[in-house]
Computed example of a mutant assay.
Amino acid sequence: MSAPANPAEPILRIESVAKSFGPVKAVDNVSLDIRENEFFALLGPSGCGKTTLLRMLAGFESPGAGRILLEGRDISPLPPEKRPLNLMFQSYALFPHMTVRQNLSYGLEMERLGKGEIRRRVDETMAMTDLTSFADRKPDQLSGGQKQRVALARALVKRPKVLLLDEPLGALDKKLRERMQLELKRMQHEAGITFIIVTHDQEEALVMADRMAILKDGRLLQVGAPEDVYERPADRFVANFIGVMNFIDGAVASDGVFEAEGLRLAVVDATPGPATLAVRPENIALGPPGERLAGTIADIAYHGLDRVLHVRTAAAEALMQVRVPASGAGDWRIGDALSLKIDPAKCRLFQ
Rank of each mutant, 00 (worst) to 15 (best):
S20R: 15
K19V: 09
E81W: 13
L265V: 12
L265E: 02
D201Q: 02
K115E: 11
E81A: 04
P325F: 06
S20A: 15
A191K: 06
K138M: 14
T276R: 04
M56L: 06
A275D: 03
R186E: 07
L169Q: 09
Q351A: 12
T271S: 14
G218W: 07
S133D: 04
M110I: 05
R137N: 06
M180S: 10
I334D: 07
Y302M: 10
A270M: 02
V268W: 11
R177L: 03
N103E: 06
E204W: 02
E167Q: 07
Q102P: 00
R186F: 11
I197H: 13
T313W: 04
D217W: 11
I14R: 01
D130T: 11
E183D: 08
K147G: 15
L142C: 01
L85Q: 03
L69C: 04
A205M: 02
P63I: 01
A41N: 02
R219I: 13
E261F: 03
R312S: 09
V24L: 14
E183L: 01
L182Y: 10
F195M: 01
G335L: 10
R159K: 11
L293A: 05
P344N: 05
S20D: 12
P288M: 02
E203Q: 14
L43H: 11
F258N: 11
E9I: 15
A18T: 15
V268F: 08
L85I: 14
Q102Y: 07
P96G: 04
A314L: 13
L338N: 02
M88L: 03
M110L: 14
A3C: 08
G47N: 01
S105A: 13
A337F: 14
L309G: 09
V308E: 13
L172Y: 01
R154Q: 07
E61K: 06
P4T: 11
K19R: 15
R211Q: 04
K161A: 12
A315V: 10
R120D: 09
F40C: 07
L265R: 09
T132P: 02
V267A: 06
G328I: 00
V268D: 09
V244R: 15
S76K: 12
V229I: 15
V252M: 00
Q222A: 05
F241I: 04
P272C: 13
L263C: 04
Q188G: 00
L104Q: 00
A251F: 06
V238A: 10
D336G: 13
S31K: 00
E81N: 15
L70T: 05
A18M: 10
V279R: 03
M56G: 10
A285S: 14
A41H: 05
Q188I: 04
P226S: 14
T125F: 09
D130V: 13
R264N: 09
K158E: 03
P63G: 15
R177Y: 01
L220M: 03
N240V: 03
V100G: 10
K19N: 04
L54P: 02
D33V: 01
F350E: 08
E117F: 00
E259P: 05
D228K: 14
P79M: 11
Q351Y: 09
V238G: 07
P289E: 08
P4C: 03
T132V: 10
M98V: 01
G64Q: 10
D235P: 01
M88T: 12
G262M: 00
E178K: 13
P281Q: 00
R119A: 14
E261N: 14
L305N: 15
L32C: 00
A278Y: 09
P96S: 07
R232M: 12
E111Q: 15
E282G: 01
K25C: 11
